[in-house]
């Protein structure tokens, strides 16, 4: 794969200040780079901002999808490293939302020269409760989630609308329903969901060797505060900031404190 192929595969966009530190913004499950639309303006003046979509999300190249590659978070981490290589990025600050926070940890392990710091937004290294660990979900919860995805419940995804309606001659019908926001291919989303919600990356946290900021929300049904505390404890030398925000997407529900926490962390880096 050439560099251009990789940049097309992941729909990479580069914006902001070309002379600033490079910040890679990585979306989580069920979303695409639109997730960062309130973050980019806060970073663009002083940072070069790199955005991308994971394969299967947004405007990535669906033909690049390989179920076996993306059956583990490593596959996504390799994509991140390849994007960094294609742009020859070094010492980037990797801002990962939700499952992407863990993908960033894995990518930093794969390419330490590429990734120099991590911002973990609402991270969770394991969603399912375990002995002495509360991830917020029971195994049955996650089974139900995966089952609902597998049976393509409309309840789950507005991306189902075009699948059911099958209206290629009137794409606007599908677009209206999905609101063209965080577009995700349902089949590929199923693979990503399984990879995400069955993952257990707790052991990877202690291997982090770069400055790390952990951002959690006061009320997050996906990643409860116990999980934020766990990540903070496990990542050596990490900083934990609890945002006064509800929900799992503080970059949208509380953009100002989120952006402030990120920019303060970035300016603290040498």
């Amino acid at each position: 794969m050439t560099d251009v192929d990789i940049l097309c595969r992941n729909n990479v966009t580069v914006t902001g200040n070309p002379h600033g530190r490079t910040v890679v913004l990585a979306h989580g499950f069920g979303c695409d780079q639109n997730m960062w639309r309130l973050t980019v303006p806060a970073l663009a003046a002083d940072h070069r901002v790199v955005l991308f979509d994971y394969v299967g999300a947004g405007r990535s190249d669906p033909s690049a999808f390989r179920a076996e590659r993306y059956a583990s978070l490593d596959g996504y981490a390799r994509d991140v490293v390849e994007v960094c290589q294609a742009l020859d990025l070094r010492d980037v600050a990797f801002v990962g939302h939700s499952v992407s926070a863990m993908i960033g940890v894995l990518a930093a392990g794969l390419a330490p020269d590429r990734i120099g710091s991590l911002v973990m937004v609402a991270p969770s290294p394991r969603y399912i409760d375990d002995e002495g660990y509360r991830g917020g979900f029971s195994a049955a919860d996650i089974e139900e989630l995966l089952e609902s995805l597998e049976s393509n419940y409309l309840g789950w995804s507005a991306a189902m609308a075009p699948v059911i309606m099958g209206n290629p001659e009137r794409p606007e019908l599908g677009e209206e329903l999905t609101n063209s926001f965080c577009a995700t291919d349902p089949d590929m989303a199923r693979v990503f969901a399984r990879t995400t919600f069955l993952s257990d990356s707790r052991d990877d946290l202690k291997g982090v060797r770069v400055p790390t900021l952990v951002l959690e929300c006061t009320q997050d049904v996906i990643a409860p505060r116990e999980v934020g505390a766990f990540v903070h404890r496990a990542v050596p030398g990490s900083v934990l900031v609890t945002l006064d925000a509800t929900g799992h997407c503080p970059q949208l529900s509380a953009p100002v404190p989120t952006n402030t926490a990120i920019t303060e962390f970035l300016s603290s880096l040498r």
Binding site: G28, F29, G30, C31, M35, F137, D141, I142, E144, L145, S148, L149, Y153, G155, W156, S157, A158, N179, F181, C182, Q219, D220, V221, I222, T246, G247, H248, C249, L252, S253
Partner: peptide, 25 residues
Amino acid sequence: RFPDLLTVGGKLYHETHFAPLLQMQ
């Protein structure tokens, strides 16, 4: 909270799509 009434898939959908869209529109 409203998401507490939802199934797990619904919660995730609410967090990643429903709430952001509602906030935006």
